[in-house]
């Protein structure tokens, strides 16, 4: 049950996208999410969708995986676009009671749907092609200027690494405990809201107990290996910007220019 979560899963590979510096990927992903909201017409958005599709192809992650990551948020896409369908002025096409669907509304709905889909696809590219360790490493490096302000950058990124590392472990543990309690006749599928919340107690308490035990054991193991935070700590894999990384950054800039030009010359939808 808990195993079908595709969103935020790393998919190992050796494609150019995989080999890119994670910092570049992180920065570009954030930039693209901004671009998606900067683009205010179909040409600009279409161009971004095309770029996204291009990167998806290069990433050599099976298309199936992308579809799977979309499955979870399909409802949100549908919901927002249906909502948008009834907004907007313009020529009235269908009248249902006090609500009306206009040609503007349809355009808005499609526009929003494409926007959200692009958003999800692009962030999926990041998580599919970048391992959690690389990602937190990139974050640590990108946030390192904050050290001046006494922000504990290394500690934050270490916490994130550990948290991400334990997501699958905890899911597995949850499955196991649920099965064990079900075997003792715990009923988790029926009853009202209160009943269901109550039925979670036999799962949550063992889960908490084992999480604390794991945390304690991990802390002990780290102490045994003389871990004492980021001070003076070197990296096994030092991030290096290669020619390719710079080229990709330039490409990211170029995309922005194209979007801005299209915004300027084509009338806005929203």
């Amino acid at each position: 049950m808990t195993r079908d979560i595709a969103l935020g899963q790393y998919f190992p590979g050796k494609s150019p996208v995989h080999r890119l510096d994670p910092r570049v990927k992180l920065v570009l992903t954030i930039a693209f999410i901004v671009y998606i909201f900067v683009a205010n017409n179909f040409w600009g958005l279409g161009f971004l969708a095309l770029v996204t599709l291009g990167i998806m192809v290069v990433s050599s992650v099976p298309v199936k995986m992308y579809f799977k990551s979309m499955k979870g948020i399909l409802f949100i896409v549908l919901f927002t676009s249906v909502l948008n369908l009834f907004y907007g002025s313009g020529k009235v096409l269908v009248q249902i009671g006090f609500m009306q669907i206009t040609d503007d509304g349809i355009r808005n709905a499609i526009f929003i749907a494409v926007r959200i889909v692009c958003l999800i696809l692009f962030s999926s590219i990041l998580t599919f092609t970048t391992s959690p360790t690389e990602l937190t490493d990139a974050m640590e490096r990108l946030m390192s200027p904050l050290k001046v302000l006494h922000v504990k950058v290394h500690e934050i990124s270490m916490m994130m690494t550990i948290a991400l590392r334990f997501v699958p472990t905890l899911l597995e543990e949850t499955d196991k405990i649920m099965a064990a309690q079900k075997a003792r006749g715990a009923d988790m599928e029926s009853g009202g809201l209160m009943q269901r919340i109550k039925s979670l107690i036999p799962v949550l308490i063992p889960l908490f107990v084992s999480s604390f035990r794991r945390a304690y054991e991990l802390a002990m193991a780290m102490e045994c290996r003389c871990y004492h935070g980021g001070e003076g700590r070197t990296k096994m894999k030092v991030l290096h910007m290669e020619a390719m990384d710079y080229a990709v950054l330039v490409f990211g800039g170029a995309v922005l220019v194209v979007i801005l030009l299209l915004n300027h010359f084509v009338p806005a939808v929203i």
């Binding site: 309690q181 006749g185 107690i201 036999p202």
Partner: peptide
Amino acid sequence: MVFQYPEDQLFEETVLKDIQFGPRN
């Protein structure tokens, strides 16, 4: 069914109450 490492499933306040979980259900 007794799972592997079944001690991970204990959750009640007392041993007796935990053993009673099954019969109570």
